[in-house]
């Protein structure tokens, strides 16, 4: 049974945010109007956060693309009262939008703050014509439910279906999330962490590898490579 993980090389990342845009397009993440943005309600499943050290002129800024960590011991799954967020056998923390009651306990519990809430029916407020660009494989969320990065698990489903039709197993590279696919500097890698020969497993063994806030015990499956360790 594969366990899907991601490796992001911070020393190659240029913070171009192509991953953010690709994620937004792929997953029908709604556009948030400026008024709502100013009320801190913008939704971005993949986000580039920045950490700045020092003071001028000795300033050093690190940009960190932050998807959902897809923890193997997820605090959000523990606290959901209705099984609307769950850990799949392949290690993806998924969301069941029709079941979510919008209590926002998972948002409060996530130490990485990767979960977002639809304060209004944002998708419905987007101009109707823009819905023609929607990805048909991903559901559009109604108001009052929580959403987050799912490692584009609809792509996993499509890859499995394609492999089943062609009567073969999944090859590495059949399933990559939109952000990994779009990165121009090839800073992101994705694959099966349970397979010791996969690219992500090899990169995860690098001496530059670390995970965010590992000491919390959440067992995140997003590994960062950097000469400097951050947020552990």
């Amino acid at each position: 049974m594969p366990r899907w993980g991601m490796v992001i090389d911070l020393d190659k990342c240029t913070a171009c945010q192509a991953c953010v845009v690709a994620c937004q397009v792929e997953n029908n993440v709604p556009f948030i109007e400026e008024k709502e943005y100013r009320r801190s309600r913008a939704i971005s499943w993949m986000k580039v956060i920045s950490e700045t050290e020092g003071s001028f002129p000795n300033v050093r800024t690190q940009f960190i693309p932050r998807p959902c960590m897809q923890c193997d011991n997820p605090p959000c799954v523990r606290v959901c009262p209705v099984h609307a967020t769950y850990l799949s056998p392949e290690g993806i923390v998924g969301q069941i939008y029709p079941r979510c009651i919008g209590c926002r306990f998972c948002i409060a519990a996530c130490p990485y703050t990767v979960k977002y809430f639809n304060w209004y029916a944002y998708s419905a407020r987007v101009p109707k014509e823009m819905h023609r660009a929607d990805d048909p494989d991903v559901s559009v969320r109604p108001k009052g439910v929580v959403e987050k990065c799912t490692f584009c698990d609809h792509r996993l489903q499509k890859a499995k279906d394609k492999a089943a039709v062609e009567k073969r197993t999944l090859h590495p590279g059949d399933y990559v999330p939109a952000c990994v696919e779009s990165c121009p500097s090839k800073a992101m890698a994705f694959g099966d962490m349970a397979d010791p020969e996969s690219i992500v497993s090899q990169l995860a063994r690098s001496p530059r590898a670390f995970r965010l806030m590992e000491a919390l015990g959440t067992k995140p499956k997003v590994v960062y490579l950097s000469e400097r360790k951050l947020y552990d």
Binding site: P81, V82, I101
Partner: peptide
Amino acid sequence: NILIDLGRPDRIMNLFYYGRYQSPLL
């Protein structure tokens, strides 16, 4: 007040159909 806080109070029956006793809300 908790019911008022829910994003989807119309789905309150989900607490009865799918509730999880691991969650402090239950």
